[in-house]
Design a protein around this nucleic acid. Sequence first.
DNA 1: TTATAATTAGGACCAGGTACTAATTATATT
DNA 2: AATATAATTAGTACCTGGTCCTAATTATAA
Lengths: 190, 190
Amino acid sequence: MTKRGSGKVFRQKNLTRYLQNNPLLKDEELAGMFGVSIQTIRLDRSELNIPELRERMKTALQTNNSVRSLGSDELVGDLLDIKVGSFGVSLLKITPEMTLRKNQVARGHHLFAQANSLAVAIIDAEIVLTGDIRVRFKHQVKSGDLVVCRAEIGSQKGNRTTVRVISQVGETVVLEGIFIVFVLEEEENQ
Amino acid sequence: MTKRGSGKVFRQKNLTRYLQNNPLLKDEELAGMFGVSIQTIRLDRSELNIPELRERMKTALQTNNSVRSLGSDELVGDLLDIKVGSFGVSLLKITPEMTLRKNQVARGHHLFAQANSLAVAIIDAEIVLTGDIRVRFKHQVKSGDLVVCRAEIGSQKGNRTTVRVISQVGETVVLEGIFIVFVLEEEENQ
DNA sequence: TTATAATTAGGACCAGGTACTAATTATATT
DNA sequence: AATATAATTAGTACCTGGTCCTAATTATAA
């Protein structure tokens, strides 16, 4: 069940793509996202010839590439990977403000917002709205957790699209859901 | 002849401009450029509220990355009425920031956040978490709309409570849902 | 069962800082 | 000229996010 010793290829592939979209990720954060140790991430970077954070920032600045050129301010969390019309991955780091003071557990609507905005973002259309949803919060999320959300398009009929969403902290699934979203036509009332 | 104790104003003015054009300059480099010590540069930055190298790089990279976050208060919206253990009513005024720029339609997760936080608020317990939900977004909500959300407790079995939620703009139902929420006991694993 | 691959642990070290205390030097004031 | 004040420099302890290295542990395949 792919705990250790495996998943290396998968991890390295995703690591590469994540860092392409977001050079600001620290080793520690990446370790949290994949549920491995910092050392493993460093081995990965070393094998893949991916430089450290500060170097990545520098080159990102110098190539003046305005990292987030995708209209991603609509998104809650940071976009790690996306293939519009197919799937998307985003990262949300849980800050203390997102949690209940009493027990530091993240409040559901933050996780929901990440999932919802990602589900909408992967649809290949100008205007997309959420219709029905079915969401299950499966596990508590604490302050400091790194929530990786993956959304994938399921069926598509007319302007109605089904998106499956799973959010994880390391190996643990914390949210699972199905979003039915609608593409709005440009004709438009008012 | 302006060696020490003078030229401070001049130096700070130029320091500011240099860093605006090139955020990558290190304190050590700046010290060399002005012929002063590193400590002097650090005092300057401190007085001018100029952050350190890494922070400057980050902000330079993130200029177009404004992540829209949800309110961090316990309740999203204003509480209009509540009877803990029974029902609650809240009001959320839709501001332009809550909408998609393209069509001024409110994004689903804001409505969800209002509903979710209200559903949790009416439970008579210290710590409440969202479990399963089933939500239907029935109608578009526009900027300026006043969304009134009403949550009502349904069945209650053990630590598991069902809450029915309806949000309306005027007479129009815009959101309908059922939230299964859980009361957390105080015993608690870490 | 054993060899090999993958992962984890730990420590010494580095750059570029923060934050603080104290000393020194310049400039102005009386 | 003596002194108060502003500016600068020195030095230390500590921090983050790394590198680079060695060694141990765990997983997977032969």
